[in-house]
């Protein structure tokens, strides 16, 4: 019975993921719980670091980059993810830091 319930939950989860879409709103997510002019940052799906400040566009706060693009490595991505201060694109959720060779 337990296996059937877990299997059903698993299928339901997969189905909802498949239908929810994958709109990449990382620039907006980077300003959630922040105020206008506050510093923000995010990593886009192409592994580019965006650093700037939150600016108001109609009803949305969007992270406006004012530093040059910085391409980052998987290792840097892992560091940023661990620090938790930078918003990471959902499309990078499956990327992991390279192994250290151990």
């Amino acid at each position: 019975m337990y296996k059937i319930i877990m299997l059903s939950l698993g299928l339901l989860s997969l189905t909802s993921i498949a239908h929810q879409g994958h709109v990449d709103d990382t620039a907006l997510q980077a300003c959630v719980d922040k105020t206008k002019s506050q510093s923000c940052g995010y990593v886009s799906s192409s592994l580019q670091l965006h650093l700037g400040s939150c600016q108001q566009f109609k009803e949305h706060l969007i992270c406006v980059r004012n530093k040059p693009f910085e391409s980052i490595t998987d290792r840097k991505l892992a560091e940023l993810r661990a620090a938790g201060e930078i918003t990471i694109s959902d499309r990078l959720s499956k990327r992991h830091a390279p192994h250290d060779g151990h």
Partner: peptide, 25 residues
């Protein structure tokens, strides 16, 4: 779409929109 990416809208892009945005595309 504001994600930092710029996509060429060719036939392949249209064909693969379900991968990018979801299976109902």
């Amino acid at each position: 779409d504001g994600s930092g990416e710029v996509y060429d809208i060719d036939g392949e892009f249209i064909l693969n929109l379900d991968t990018l945005y979801g299976s109902d595309w």
